[in-house]
Design a protein around this nucleic acid. Structure first.
Lengths: 187, 187
DNA sequence: CGCGTAATTGAAAAGTATCAACACTGGTGG
DNA sequence: CCACCAGTGTTGATACTTTTCAATTACGCG
């Protein structure tokens, strides 16, 4: 559920020193919007520590959490490659450290650094495969089995992430989530 | 709903002549599995004409259609880049023509041909953005509005794609789809 | 014609959303 | 120190949506 990507993180770490003008480390408090949906982005980010949520808001005020990002996860890259306004918002959940990478520098790396290019390709395909499975699983399983699955792969779930966020991740109401949780205990 | 990708198609077309040993045009009948889930793949495909469906089957026999592919759409690339067994199955819906690209050649292109590399990056990010919006929309809207949306962006829907496939795309039962369609007419 | 696949429909059961009330917690100011 | 407030979490009752199960019809094709 909260994926990580050590390969990216290590690589960025190795770049950090020699490219300090393009890669800066930022310390961010909880509930800060690092990327705002439908806005222009000027950086690509790699999460060094903490957890963020990536979500999409609809016109009628609904929020759907696409994914929680863990260590090493990359975001803002879709916008940089595709040159569009931001697709999602990304917001810190706890205290977070991110490497902010200058967009032009990122594009440059992508064009000139084969190893980096390959890492990004892998990250993108990972994201695609992740989304495919996630959507499929969501559709066919009850709220209850979805929660059980989340708890299995991420036991600290309830301590770290608010109920509302979990509900928004599963695409259900908070009420339904609570009922499912209660039934689980009884069963 | 059925996306296309002329850029990829044109580029493959331009490569076809000089690389005929690695790129072959295949003519395929309806209901043929071009890629089988959980199997090794040896080609990457670009759809020249026709429509295919890309779907994921679950252990308990459910089928969830990720996407319908139209002209120029690429598939098998996730497996090639990531070097895994196939994530989804891809099956022809009508008569279909595909360019089958040798996997090694594809990787070679990706590493040496900057324009190609860039096209693939764009295609991957497109796919991610598409999936993000699709999943979100699916969650928050009733079956009825989902259908209305599909009909708007693809009016020939009902003539081209079976009801069962549409239901599997929306992640609902055929019964529910039929009820929604009937209500739509009455309203 | 007869067969298999696709499509349609009804009724009951299960799952979810909506609305609304109430409990718990950690801070803030009087 | 207590009262108050905002944010978060909990719970019940009811209405609505979707699935499940099952029966029937329509269609294309050898």
């Amino acid at each position: 559920m909260i994926r990580e990507d050590k390969d990216i993180l290590n690589y960025i770490f190795s770049l950090e020193k020699k490219s300090s003008e393009y890669i800066t480390l930022q310390h961010i408090k909880p509930m800060y919007k690092i990327i705002k949906q439908d806005h222009k982005t000027s950086n690509i980010y790699v999460l060094k520590s903490g957890i963020t949520k990536c979500y999409l808001s609809t016109e009628d005020g609904n929020v759907f959490i696409q994914e929680f990002f863990g260590e090493g996860q990359l975001f803002g890259e879709v916008e940089a490659i595709h040159d569009t306004l931001s697709v999602c918002s990304v917001e810190s959940i706890n205290n977070v450290q991110v490497y902010a990478i200058n967009k032009e520098y990122f594009r440059d790396l992508l064009a000139t650094d084969k190893k980096f290019n390959n890492l990004i390709l892998k990250t993108l395909t990972n994201k695609i495969a992740y989304k495919a499975h996630r959507h499929s699983y969501n559709q066919f399983n009850s709220i209850q089995s979805n929660i059980e699955r989340l708890k299995k792969i991420f036991p600290e779930l309830m301590q770290v992430i608010s109920k509302q966020d979990i509900a928004n991740y599963l695409g259900v109401t908070l009420r339904s989530l609570n009922r499912a949780l209660k039934n689980q205990i009884e069963a």
